[in-house]
Design a protein around this nucleic acid. Structure first.
Lengths: 193, 193
DNA sequence: TCGTTATGAGTGAACGTTCACTCAAATCCT
DNA sequence: AGGATTTGAGTGAACGTTCACTCATAACGA
């Protein structure tokens, strides 16, 4: 059997599972659901993952680290405030570009976060690093960097969440500047890097 | 049976269920778990709630509206920035005073929020109202009030979440000022009310 | 090149377990 | 006594997981 076919099955299961997990959550999604949506048998799934829980944990860890990596890339270079502004805009854009990924991460975090192995690079780490740089260069106020990073991420996540749940009806793109302005006024010293 | 005893059973089930839901989540908590922890039979539970799902939804709605009410009370009066500062401190204090309530609300929000009936007063509404007052009195920058409210709540929630999950080890009390300072620098106009 | 064998992903019915929910009998209260 | 309430073993459906078997492809030998 060719390697392409092998990856096809894996990828089909992965995509189907993420979409279903994103819609109904991990617990409410059955193996039958996933197999049917992916167009494979239930048994085939167990050739690639040991259990449903391991499948969910593996998918979450992969998406979580990818998010962290993409976030760092989107931040780019330059002074920390500018990088944070890019992070906000990028995160809001991601929801519209890949709603399943975003919803999957939002929905599964409470189940899956405790299963993520320690030492993995997380999005929190990435933002922490930017904030730390900002403190070092004097462009971000000198305070607990984790608390500031959580403040930034929380502001992003809750705006996204409320959008995903249909509470916030204004398009996210229009809010990026509002949220970024408020956060940066709060975190910046006003001095350039 | 006296009304007190009836309420006793209800309250015992409610407390036990919240503690278990907070530890394992709703789906992973069984009726047997709840009945055993509350010291009642499984059947007795169905005299008060029609199903496990209804029990979870009712508990969440009650805690959610209570949270909203308590939050408004904790905010007190005066200029909006001061009220928001009190909200931050109160929320952080709540986690230490009633960790089960906080954890239950955090864990169940994705399952239960869609079931909360429309028109119920939510914590988001309460913060929105404060922000709206601030905009009206000129003490809060004039921007989308929902986006600003989500920014405030997100910052609070993510700091709490990271504390509950053991990532943030600094005591929450020590972070209240850091987070409130950052948020208020971001939202205030600097003009008094 | 062509026939034979080895590989391992894929299949899906069957299995055992878990769990929400029921109900006949027991218990309690007035 | 008689209604209200509680009990917990029982029920049936749903679900994750298994496993004996299939078959397309790869690897091999002559």
């Amino acid at each position: 059997m060719s390697k392409d076919a092998r990856n096809d099955a894996r990828n089909k299961v992965r995509d189907a599972a993420i979409a279903l997990f994103a819609q109904k959550g991990v617990k409410a999604t059955t193996i039958k659901d996933i197999a049917r949506a992916a167009g494979v048998s239930e048994g085939a799934l167990y050739r690639h993952w040991a259990s449903k829980e391991e499948l969910a944990a593996a998918l979450f860890a992969a998406e979580y680290t990818a998010l962290s990596h993409d976030l760092s890339a989107a931040a780019g270079g330059g002074p920390a405030p500018q990088r944070l502004r890019r992070v906000v805009a990028w995160a809001f854009g991601l929801v519209e570009a890949a709603p399943d990924r975003a919803r999957f991460l939002l929905l599964s975090q409470h189940d899956a976060l405790p299963l993520v192995p320690d030492g993995l690079e997380t999005p929190v780490d990435a933002v922490c690093a930017i904030v730390g740089d900002g403190i070092a260069e004097g462009s971000i106020v000198d305070a607990d960097r984790e608390a500031l990073a959580h403040t930034v991420i929380g502001a992003i996540v809750l705006n996204i969440q409320s959008h995903v749940y249909g509470r916030q009806t204004a398009p996210l793109g229009a809010l990026a500047d509002t949220v970024a302005d408020a956060l940066l006024r709060g975190l910046s010293t006003g001095k350039g890097a």
